[in-house]
Design a protein around this nucleic acid. Structure first.
Lengths: 238, 238
DNA sequence: TAGTTTATCTTGTATATACAAGTTTGATGT
DNA sequence: ACATCAAACTTGTATATACAAGATAAACTA
């Protein structure tokens, strides 16, 4: 009764190459195997290989040069919060830990929610969770996440510690973030935030509000986050 | 002796559809003609049409739905490039003014530039300019821009006041920003910034450093900006 | 009528092939 | 030794075709 999901060849090529770049088998400036080499490797044709390579180029892993080849791009560093490419940051995963302050719970949207909601969305309610991220055991980023309430089997009980919410949504529910918008402020930490991030109330923090569309119709992800950028910074690529 | 550039079919499809979306022939939510219809229209095959459509999807003009069609997206402000918005909904362009503190000048890159430069780039030097943006005559955002020094005829003498640098680069030099990355901090304003933005040195400001790739090989645009987000916020779509 | 199936749309994945055009390298000829 | 040219790479554009799979509406059945 196993799912027996059809794994598409071009997706396998993407995953393989992505992994090898992230592992460091291919470093910045290296040339990937040529399209024809990859064709032989995967026993397929150039159209399929090119589909994978152009996706990788779009995700920012490589740049392509006519007559030359596929050149591995600079690895992205920083707290890659926003990267749509799914690059889990250049900050070593071992240094970045996440603790859940509020496990996912179904609830109504807060009053005066920070982005306007359409009717269906407002009626459906949301799944709320909050997390605190640490780097080297120091709290750095506090994030509140609101997901439109649709049926996500076993979602509330999933272990979100030290794992990317986006990866879980992708792997288990095939939900992928497609586009979004964000608003950015610099603020003094208020009492709650200064407690959470263990800083003084005069300390400047980045405040961000984000709205993200997904590939699932009607399902949006909102988040509000506060970040102490004294020792680290927020980064994103577009 | 004209250039007689070969215009590729898939590029023509992209341009045609893009134009029709921008003109409003296709509005948000509309379905584009199906792939097969477009095949007949352009007397070509699906592979070529799909190449165009997937490019348009990547550019954010459409989203594609399996079994449904190509759906025209909400028009977006720019390509994920930072735009400034007011708390009170969108500020009209009339309220936003720009003054040039430093007209474009050719110079060497600063020492310890905030992004690593490759050899060619470092050798070429840069064009530097700085601008101060006001909302309702209050200074809100200070931005320093560095462009790789390539020949841009008459660029230094162009009037950049109240006009988008990106629009000028696009219209006059066909330079378009393709992708980029940005780093974000919250900081207390230092003396220079507090003077420029007319705020106290304890005031929190958003500091951003951005690196942008263009469609011209070897031409990159860097910027470092400081923003007072008390009355306004920075906004960004991706 | 209401629910189900079927046909027919749509896009998604894939094979096989051809030639154009940019880049590099090595052979050739002076 | 050096410049030139040709061959052998690379990616870019394109045609033609096949079947899978999601979405939708018409036809069918209870």
């Amino acid at each position: 009764m196993s799912k027996k999901e059809v794994i598409h060849l071009y997706k396998k090529v993407i995953e393989d190459l992505k992994l090898q770049i992230e592992k460091g088998d291919f470093k910045k400036g290296d040339l990937l195997p040529s399209e024809n080499d990859l064709c032989k490797l995967y026993d397929t044709t150039r159209v399929t290989i090119r589909q994978a390579l152009s996706a990788l180029a779009n995700m920012g892993y490589i740049t392509r040069k006519h007559g030359k080849g596929s050149i591995v791009s600079e690895p992205k560093a920083g707290l890659g919060i926003l990267s749509l490419s799914g690059v889990t940051a250049g900050i070593g995963t071992q240094k970045l830990t996440t603790s859940i302050l509020q496990k996912p719970v179904k609830q109504a949207w807060p009053d005066n929610f920070f982005f306007p909601l359409d009717e269906e969305e407002a009626k459906a309610g949301c799944i709320f969770l909050s997390r605190l991220r640490h780097i080297d055991n120091m709290p750095v980023l506090y994030e509140e996440t609101y997901i439109t309430n649709i049926e996500l089997p076993r979602f509330s009980s999933r272990n979100l510690e030290n794992r990317s919410l986006f990866n879980i949504l992708k792997e288990h529910y095939k939900i992928e973030v497609k586009e979004g918008e964000q608003k950015i402020w610099a603020r003094h930490a208020d009492k709650a935030i200064s407690n959470l991030l263990q800083i003084k109330t005069t300390h400047p923090v980045v405040h961000m509000q984000r709205k993200m569309q997904t590939n699932v119709d009607g399902l949006r992800i909102y988040s509000s986050l506060y970040c102490n950028t004294e020792e680290n910074f927020l980064r994103d690529s577009f």
